[in-house]
Design a protein around this nucleic acid. Structure first.
Lengths: 343, 343
DNA sequence: AGAGATTACGCAAACGATTGCGGTCACTAT
DNA sequence: ATAGTGACCGCAATCGTTTGCGTAATCTCT
């Protein structure tokens, strides 16, 4: 059985309140050195450790934030988790993870994400669905929330630390164009994962498409439907499809929604004997370590994950302390191109 | 503000106790249908959700287990986390993650892992250090714990769901031998990460070494010291070192402690123009998806992660319910070879 | 020396739930 | 009519902390 504050108090001959005040250094009242010493020593000897549940009940806070990410099978999100958890733990906050896509959380979400279970939420979701959809009607809208990754049009007032997703597409376009991969054959393709059967036309796809339109470069947004083998598998099967095309129907440059797709696609193309980047150039997104250790290192776009997480945690913390809302409400962090050998 | 049991009770004109008993269906006493209906409807309307902190305080349990893994930069451990979390959430248990290697948890461990913060622990650590070292002197030895991944000689009595680590080495050896990669040049090498500056001589290295001794195959255990770039980076630099050797000093077959090392090494060797598997064969460990999508798909060893996690969670659950200890105390799950193109 | 300030501490009420025990009914059996 | 029996429900303690307020004791100053 654990030792409680009561035990300390009794042992030191003081009231629980006094012991509590000594141990937390809080509570207005002043306590004599002698008493402090006595209490502290006893606590030390008995190996006292406060009951978190009782503290949380009394202080009406959970010391916990919910971190919502799509899943953990993409190292990008793992990185997000690692950094968020690190910054949160520095502030003494627990992290509870909620992968939304991989598992069927159903009622579990409701169970875990009530106002009483978490003090705040960091939400990395698709820009089209807001957190409300996740929490359901029972969701408590008053939980302090900071959005990660992108701005949510449905929550224009919310705090967000986003990545310049559209800029990703533009940067990729510029790079492919300058390197001369854009005007070849069927122009530029953007490979995206499917969503409800069609390619995700997110900001990065749009950014690239816009760039292509400006330069009058042929552009296609493509996806596949076989996701049974993960994103790499999808990329691989798309690569195979490209291999099946005659040369002039193939893209000159490919921008992949993320590095996993890119790796899969690269794998198929290389095995198919395609000259990269001479025939087809490839650029990924997220700068995963995995891309660097391909036989042909992947050109990709690095996003400032740690900065994003740090800022988000900082903002969430402010929100939880009801500090005045920071200006601007939304931060947008810019990516950086990492030159590899696939462009 | 959240609605409490008190509110329900008052609204329905019953005592808190009655409301509680209705909502949990527990507590011996019988409640009339009419009352039940009234309470339930009110709870529904008001969107009542119990305060977990209060419940946990009262029931003296945290509904939470601590999942301890070295870090999350290796997808293998991510997989462990994903599966454990899944099986735990099926049983209504929260998961809190403690990466031991990546971050300096220091006092945080002590803070989070007390008897009062978690009901149980799943521990995936190196076989040489026990959980006691992690928890420190303040650690509460009475927390139900199940060891994951390997047996801990320091805890022969403990429950464990282990992988047949030594068998990994043996299987790799047999495979390299049968494929004719073992007797070439400098024989078989085992690439391991360093620990305190020297290669980890764990069970898989020993398993391979023993096999080599039996067949009188030259064997070396090698590592490097540059881990600034992760395991892939280490593998890569070791690959470069191999490239610098004259052919007859090179290994005929390499067994890598894990797929990340293997991928890095493979990358260096291929870029260096080595014929794989003709000149050097390579076998990894863990069957990460990443290995399959190399230009030359990696031969590797698959371990039954989901089974391991499921069994571990099941056993931990039993332990927490103080069920009689299962026999045998330790389960050992065997790996399976996945043939790729690097052997 | 007595008023006022300060120091040092204890009392008891929260926080929101669970649960052992006891009490009130209505109804039946004697 | 009285005791016995269920069915139904409320009282109040309990989990371990925090904290507002009250009150002695001590000190300071004139």
């Amino acid at each position: 059985m654990q030792v409680s504050l009561e035990d300390i108090a009794r042992g030191a001959g003081v009231a629980r309140s006094t012991a509590s005040r000594v141990l937390n250094g809080s509570g207005g009242a002043t306590i004599s050195q002698a008493t402090q010493e006595r209490v502290r020593r006893l606590a030390q000897e008995l190996g006292y450790r406060p009951n978190r549940m009782a503290q949380r009940l009394r202080k009406r806070q959970a010391d916990t934030i919910g971190l919502i990410v799509p899943h953990l099978r993409n190292p990008f999100f793992v990185e997000v988790v690692v950094w968020c958890q690190r910054f949160l733990s520095e502030r003494g906050l627990n992290t509870v993870l909620y992968p939304t896509m991989l598992e069927d959380w159903g009622g579990a979400t409701e169970y875990h994400l009530s106002r009483w279970a978490v003090d705040g939420i960091l939400y990395y979701g698709s820009p089209t669905d807001s957190i409300q959809k996740l929490l359901g009607e029972s969701g408590d809208a008053s939980i302090p929330t900071v959005y990660l990754g992108h701005l949510h049009e449905s929550e224009p007032e919310a705090l967000a630390v986003a990545l310049a997703v559209e800029e990703l597409g533009r940067l990729a376009g510029v790079h492919l164009y300058e390197r001369g991969h854009a005007r070849r054959n069927a122009g530029v393709w953007c490979l995206s994962p499917p969503r409800d059967g069609v390619a995700i036309r997110d900001a990065r796809a749009c950014g690239l498409e816009r760039f292509c339109q400006e330069r009058e470069i042929p552009f296609s947004l493509v996806t596949g439907n076989d996701i049974s083998d993960g994103l790499r598998g999808l990329g691989f099967s798309l690569g195979l499809q490209i291999l099946a095309l005659p040369a002039q129907a193939r893209p000159g440059g490919i921008f992949c929604h993320n590095d996993l797709l890119a790796v899969g696609c690269l794998c198929a193309l290389r095995r198919g004997g395609v000259n990269i980047p001479e025939e087809i150039a490839l650029i990924g997104c997220d700068a995963l370590p995995e891309g660097r250790f391909q036989e042909l290192s992947l050109t990709t776009l690095r996003q400032p994950i740690s900065t994003m997480c740090q800022q988000a945690v900082e903002r969430l913390f402010g929100l939880m302390q009801s500090e005045p809302l920071p200006q601007p409400r939304q931060i947008i962090l810019t990516p950086e191109l990492v030159q590899g050998h696939t462009t």
